[in-house]
Structures are given as C-alpha cells and as structure tokens.
Nucleic acid binder design. Structure first.
Lengths: 220, 220
DNA sequence: ATTTTAATGTCAGATGAGCGACAGATTTTT
DNA sequence: AAAAATCTGTCGCTCATCTGACATTAAAAT
C-alpha cells in the first residue's frame, strides 16, 4: 500500500540525502520526540508511523495542530530558526525516524539548493494549509469544522478500500474535540448523527467514511 | 520611526538583492494586488505601507489571515509552489512594492543559498505563528481571542508612544470580528468594556493600548 | 482472564454569543 | 459643504454548545 503522496513528503532522492546525513532511530508508541520549550537542535524525517504535533493549552488540553506521515520532515521550522520548540511531537504508534543535527541540516541545504527550495516549498505548503485551517476555524460552526477535519484526515491519512475510506488514526473524541475547539460530548453526538445517516461506519475507534458527500453536506 | 524588526522582515542586504532583481510599483489604498484563484507568478517585497492577506468565506466575509509590513515578502509560498493563489492581497494604504517574477525569485534563491535559507526561516516562522493562531482560536473563548489579537497587533504594528501603544491599522469591528470568528456587535461590546476599564483609548478608529496588562487579564 | 483505566453515550440545566434591527455617529465621496 | 455610505452602540430574542454528571462500554494493564 502506498503512503500518501503529494502532501509535503520528500521524494526518494531527497530522503536519501537526509538518510546519509542522519541517524535512524526507533521510538515506541506514546514516546515524546521533543517537548515545548526545549532547544531545537534536531530535525527528523519520518520513515514509518505517524507523529502528532500538539501544543499545550493553559488548561492542560493537548491541541493537535498537525499529524506528520512517512516521508515528511518534523521539527523543521524551529530547527531552521534556531529557536525553542513551541510544540510537542509524539509518536502515535511505533515510528522510525531519521534524526538530523541542525548543523547537518544546514550543510545539506547550503550545499544543495534544490533541497533548500524543496524545504521552502514544504514550509510554504504547510503555511497555506495552516491559514486554511484558521479560516475554517473562524468561519464554520462546530458541525462544519468536524466535517472539514474528517475530510482532511481522510485525504491525508485515509486508505481507500473501494467501499469507503478507512481512517486508522484511532483518535479519541476528546482529541478530535481539541482539534476543532469544541467539547467531547459534542463530538460524540455529531459522530452519532453521521453514523445514523450511514455517512460513516465505526468499528472500535477506526472510522470508515462511506459517503464523503454526506459529510460535505454539513459544510454550508 | 523604525519599522518593526525581527518579525520575518528581510535585512537590508537581502532587500537589495530583491530590489535588483525586481521592479518597484506603487499601489493605491484598496488596490487588490493579487486575487484567489489566480496563477501565482509573482512575489512581492513590501517597501512602504501594509498589505492585508485575506481569504473569502462561503458567505462572502473576508477572513484576514495576515498583515504584511515593510520589509516582508508577500505571495511567497504560492509563488514557490507554483500553485494558484488561495487568498487575496490588498493594499491597506498606499503601498510601494518590489515585484519579482517567479523565475527571478527562483534564480535568486538558487544562486544565493543564504537567502534561500532565510526564506525557509521566514516561512517556518510564519508557520509557527499560524499554528499558534489555530491553537488560540480553538482554545479560547471570544474575549481571550480578541485580547490575544490586540496584543499581537500591538507587537507587530504598534508604535510605542511612551504613554501607550498606538495602533493605526484602522480596522473596523467587522474586520476584527472576522479575524477571530465572532460577530461584529460582540467586538463592539468587548471594546466598550476595555474602554470603560481604561485599558484602551480610542479616537476614531485608532486604538491606543494604555494597559496591556489589563488586556492580558482577559486571557485566562 | 481479571482488574483497572480510559472512552463513549446521553441528558438536564445554564449561558455565551449569534442574529436582526435600528438609531446615531463617523467617514468617505461628490 | 453637503450628501451618501459606512460604521458603531445597543437591545431583545433565540439557540447552539458547554458543563457536569453518570451509566455503559471498550481498551489496556496486570
């Protein structure tokens, strides 16, 4: 099965450059890869697994702002800017990462303008995506925000099985609530509506999106 | 008076590189610099004035996602990615811009790894900022969001006069409402609370922030 | 397998904030 | 300077959504 393309993942050539400059490390599920406040001296390339990027709200809730997939770079922006981490990175399942020291990253980019441009493109793409999210958060009520999140997750992390798109991120309602700025019971109840109109199917925490069109109807 | 530093503005050396590769153009207040959907063939450097970056919501409201100041690059991400514009750029007052063709930009970055890195840094910084905004939008109620916006605008666009920070962006309540996902009357009423507790002073549409601490109290 | 922990489904009550409306003030245009 | 357009202040009414609570179910740990 193919990992998801086009979305800011490096191509094989660029990945090899990173692999040669870095070191492969394995993290178990739940492991914190870096924490907010730390000095950002390392960047990472995801080889397998998913990495959740989140910020801590004042009340302790974890606000997920991104999920990074295989082929994507993690911790890039802050490592480039030589600043401190503004967020946490956590292994959502067992992950393999290539770890890259800041200096190695900079050398790599300086000696390889094509890669530097690619990195700028990736960051630019993520920026546009983040701006789209801001836009969505301020302009849609809860239903719409959840619908948009589901569709986005499906596009990024979903596996099309022919009769529905499977989402195996296994996010809890609480986590989803934090992503769209609502309460956990509200997420539960919207999911139940979606289930009862057969737009989605759930077994355990896995979601299968049967009719994306029915979800899109919530966005108006 | 100095333009605001550290915030993703290019230094003089980099600005000169751009100036040499581009063409200076003047836009009157209100002029659309580029529109959503257009092919992104040009990037811009702001010389004087402010540029508002906004997206159009389904109901026609303009959702401002950024304001660019002198020294900053505009239209960067999409021009790099060779994609279409996802947002509009509008002159908030009379602005002077250096216009740069995509090819010139790419040449510049390829022949100048230091600038390429700087561009990646700028994009990375903007990304972190956008993620912080997402975080704020989902984790604070309206009061907190307005307070955070005011403080951020003050830091970016404010002029410290000794007895208060002046904000001359002249945003309407409607525009502010769209930036934080609330309604116009709600913004009016929060502003009135802030005025009555003397945290801010307004003459016309100019805001003077007298006690930032009083504004911070709304964020809890 | 059993126990412990965490997540989900559901509900009643409280409320923040949206909506529409309109008068008065300010800004912009003519 | 006058007219037109836009913005601000304010008020009920209404409703979406939050809070807290608790039973039920599923997942993780032992």
């Amino acid at each position: 099965m193919e990992t998801n393309h086009k979305f800011f993942a490096l191509d094989d050539c660029d990945k090899n450059l990173v692999r040669m400059a870095g070191l492969k490390i394995n993290y178990p599920k739940g492991q914190i890869i870096f924490a907010s406040g730390e000095y950002a001296g390392l960047a990472y390339l995801v080889e397998t697994g998913w990495v959740k990027i989140y910020r801590l709200a004042a009340d302790g809730r974890k606000i997920t702002v991104a999920i990074r997939h295989p082929g994507e770079l993690v911790g890039l922006a802050e490592t480039l800017c030589n600043s401190r981490r503004s967020c946490f990175a956590e292994a959502m399942n067992e992950v393999d990462l290539v770890v890259l020291k800041r200096d190695s990253l900079l050398d790599l980019l300086r000696s390889n303008p094509r890669l530097a441009l690619k990195v700028a493109e990736v960051l630019g793409g993520r920026l546009r995506e983040a701006q789209a999210t801001i836009h969505e958060m301020v302009s849609w009520p809860v239903h719409g925000r959840l619908a948009l999140l589901l569709l986005k997750l499906a596009e990024r992390s979903g596996v099309d099985t022919g009769n529905g798109i499977e989402l195996n991120l296994r996010l809890t309602h609480e986590e989803i609530a934090c992503m769209i700025g609502t309460s956990r019971p509200t997420v539960t109840s919207i999911f139940n509506s979606l289930k009862s109109e057969k737009a989605i199917l759930m077994k355990g925490r896995d979601i299968k999106i049967i009719y994306p069109e029915k979800i899109k109807k919530w966005i108006r």
